[in-house]
Nucleic acid binder design. Structure first.
Lengths: 237, 237
DNA sequence: GATGGGCAGGTTGTATACAAGATGACTGAC
DNA sequence: GTCAGTCATCTTGTATACAACCTGCCCATC
């Protein structure tokens, strides 16, 4: 979620640009967890001064992507799998609460119609493919939480989503996972539509747990592969 | 929670000092929601340069205490009561989840004994009074969440606690509220001890809701009073 | 008197200079 | 060969200078 969203359109700042660039570097594995670098390096590479670079790095630090080592550089936070599990747990807690909140509203939120259109297509041929599914999946969960109507909860959930994106994106590289996602999302929407918050929460939990397990096994291999590529690039500059 | 906690003891930085000072100013109502000021003012007042002041302000902004107005100063975020309600809702969601997590552990967490000693005193005379109760109450809720064992959940809960502190502190100015707090905390601990997560969650929810309602009515008056004092100080410098 | 434009002052955003300290390689002694 | 100490280098933390631009006041004009 861009910080300028909703605002009168703050002109783009260098700090924002650096922030987005670094975040992209992390998400695209150009910066491997564990990589170390200095503010000066980044500043040179992105043609900026240290000041906006520092601002961007501190933002990323607060979001849990970076560590600052006192007077000895920055490090992309090593992937801590225990921490990831905890983020998943927290995510489940928030999304379960969202189910109950949505169902306790007097009228169902309008977003449900759009979500149904996406995840309950008239024909299977209308299903999205590839990286689009990843974006749709993310937006499905975010929209549901947002529909609960608690902006603070939505904000925290968004923060968690940002931090988990780096590994969730691996979930849709297998066709069977895409199929499962469609079926499970559809079931969750059905439960909400028939005002069964308990059932919706249970299905949601199972859905996230399944995805979590699938991602877990893929992640390790990807990390290793990325590290291998990285090492190669270093060896032959 | 100090950022240096757990680390090898990073020497205290100017930025940290400014951050704590500003946070105190907000919590102690020396900075009223809505107040505007510039980075230069703060830097002069706290005998620092603009750089660490900016870092502190951006931290406070991310935590929801400040707004930055593009090239026209900073503002203490006006108290948005809807936002406060949402924070309370989120807090309840997290603490309820903590109850279930605690009860699902094979062995009860050791912290329970300490909490029981505090909130289940052998004699009523051992009850704390005044501002101590506020600190104890805050730590009661934080410790319970921490006992659930999810560090991310604990971190978010701590953030919420920080943001709500400014108004929760008003809850213990009335003796009847102190009594109620003791009784309710004791009941919650009993429910946990007898492994009844559902009951614990319900009692906790009721406890927080009661406190929320009590605080709500006090807050309005305090804010008005503070604004009055503030105006007076401005009029007679 | 009301209104619009220009200007001065102030504010944040960015770049750069300097300070304090951590790191690691090198050198010398044993 | 090994280990300890020293020092150059590099890093972040902080201060300050400069740029871009927003705001509100003042004055001229209608």
């Amino acid at each position: 979620m861009s910080r300028s969203a909703g605002k009168p359109r703050r002109q783009s700042s260098v700090a924002d640009r650096v922030y987005e660039a670094l975040k992209d570097d992390i998400f695209e594995f150009r910066l491997i967890p564990g990589d170390r670098f200095s503010e000066g390096e980044i500043a040179t590479r992105l043609a900026a001064s240290r000041t906006p670079v520092r601002e961007a790095l501190y933002r990323l630090q607060r979001e849990g992507h970076m560590d600052v080592l006192f007077r000895s550089g920055w490090q992309v936070k090593p992937l801590d799998f225990e921490r990831v599990e905890e983020l998943y747990d927290l995510r489940i807690t928030l999304e379960r609460a969202a189910m109950h909140k949505i169902c306790s509203h007097p009228t169902p939120p309008p977003i449900l119609r759009q979500l149904n259109a996406i995840w309950h297509p008239d024909h299977p041929s209308e299903r999205a493919i590839g990286s689009t599914v990843r974006a749709l999946d993310e937006s499905f969960h975010c929209e549901l939480v947002a529909a609960a109507g608690n902006r603070e909860m939505t904000r925290i959930h968004q923060e968690i989503t940002d931090r988990l994106r780096i590994i969730r994106r691996l979930d849709f590289t297998r066709p069977d996972r895409v199929d499962a996602t469609y079926n499970e999302h559809a079931e969750i929407l059905d439960a909400i539509s028939s005002n069964q918050p308990g059932a919706a929460a249970e299905k949601l939990t199972a859905h996230i747990r399944t995805s979590q397990a699938a991602v877990r096994e893929i992640t390790m291999e990807k990390i290793r592969e990325a590290a291998r590529m990285h090492q190669q690039n270093k060896a032959t500059p």
